[in-house]
Design a protein around this nucleic acid. Structure first.
Length: 63
DNA sequence: TTTCTTACA
DNA sequence: TGTAAGCA
């Protein structure tokens, strides 16, 4: 799937998805035209990042 | 239309 | 993180 789909599927902004790649949290493949292609594994990893952030911010606020 | 990269009040 | 610009 392309970035637009992943964004809708996870609720994470396109901007953030690209940032996660920069941080090496996901490794999407590239099409001939340069478009990023995400696998189900990438979907799970993006979701995992959300879970971590939720935990991180809550801990930050209530500790 | 959608995505890509780069840059910025 | 969002948005704008100029391409493909």
């Amino acid at each position: 799937m392309k970035i637009g789909e992943l964004s809708l599927k996870t609720g994470v902004s396109i901007r953030s998805i690209r940032y996660y790649e920069e941080k090496k949290l996901i490794y999407p493949k590239r099409l001939e035209n340069g478009y990023r292609v995400y696998s189900e594994e990438d979907v799970e990893r993006v979701k995992a990042v959300q879970l971590f952030l939720e935990y991180f911010y809550k801990k930050l606020i209530f500790s």
